[in-house]
């Protein structure tokens, strides 16, 4: 109640003739490309051979985001819980593939464990966010579920990559030490513990560091978007705190689960690392 009341005042102050952010015309958006001219010029003079990759990346970004715009519009229009859930499941699958590829692990072998290690914390935190924190009636409301879900997933991607990579390449590199621990402790859990600890620490450290500096160095994108979209700063900040905590929890639990769930595939019956989970580099 308070929130909506404040929002009206703000809009009235601005004149009340529009809701949310001012739309950008295509022409005005394209005008930003003007600054590419000096960039191209400098690249050329410095003989930096990145003009091609740079252009390709910019074009890809525009095309990909246009598509996202189209199907988000579609999702928002129907606002069907099933459609939203399917959309998020597809996003999780894509995230899994990208995680395994970046960690140099075989998709065929590790897709299922990583999929569930993402899905479980993700679903719990997302529903909690919608039900307890924002208190919306329709838990599967596209307007909340899709963007918040996307933010959680995008951040988990990085932390699971760091976690899995650290764990498996750590043991691979250090295999003799691992096996020797196995012989001394005669317990897989005890022998794996140091690698597990190291991978969890490595994966959550960046988020912990960014929580410590957020607001000092940079204004987070979500907050900026909300303020431009018409929210007053205090509301945007509350959301930002809620989302930072949610990101942290999802990252933390999904990284731990991804290591735990993958153990069965990652090691053979006698606790030796399965070399065939790695994508062999030729």
């Amino acid at each position: 109640m308070m929130m909506s009341g404040k929002k009206t005042t703000l809009l009235e102050l601005k004149g009340g003739d529009q809701l949310g952010a001012q739309d950008l015309t295509l022409l005005s958006l394209a005008s930003l490309l003007v600054f590419l001219i000096p960039v191209f010029y400098i690249n050329r003079r410095l003989k930096l051979k990145i003009n091609k990759t740079m252009s390709a990346s910019i074009i890809r970004m525009c095309i990909q985001l246009s598509f996202v715009g189209l199907y988000l519009e579609f999702l928002f229009k129907f606002n069907s819980p099933i459609l939203n859930i399917v959309y998020l499941l597809i996003m999780i699958s894509i995230a899994c593939q990208s995680i395994l590829k970046s960690s140099n692990l075989k998709i065929r072998k590790l897709f299922i464990p990583v999929f569930f290690s993402l899905l479980l914390p993700f679903a719990i935190i997302l529903l909690f966010f919608n039900a307890v924190v924002v208190r919306i009636d329709n838990l599967f409301e596209a307007k909340y579920m899709i963007p918040i879900g996307g933010m959680l997933l995008g951040n988990c991607l990085r932390s699971i990559i760091i976690g899995l990579n650290n764990f498996y390449s750590g043991i691979k590199k250090d295999e003799r030490v691992y096996l020797y621990s196995l012989s001394l402790f005669s317990s897989r859990i005890q022998a794996l513990k140091p690698y597990f600890k190291e991978s969890i620490t490595a994966s959550i450290t960046p988020t912990i560091a960014s929580m410590a500096t957020i607001g000092l160095v940079s204004l987070p994108g979500m907050m900026t978007g909300q303020i431009i979209g018409g929210s007053i700063p205090i509301v945007a900040i509350k959301y930002q705190i809620a989302i930072m905590l949610s990101i942290f929890y999802t990252e933390y639990f999904s990284t731990i689960l991804s290591v735990l769930f993958s153990l069965k595939v990652g090691f053979n019956e006698l606790d030796v690392l399965n070399q065939d989970i790695f994508i062999s580099k030729k």
Binding site: R176, Y180, S181, S183, S187, P194
Partner: peptide, 18 residues
């Protein structure tokens, strides 16, 4: 395997202790 490993002390050539 756990029981067997528990009965063996193995000293590897390079003593691969962590």
């Amino acid at each position: 395997i756990t029981e067997i490993r528990h009965q063996i002390f193995y000293l590897s050539q390079d003593i691969d202790l962590k």
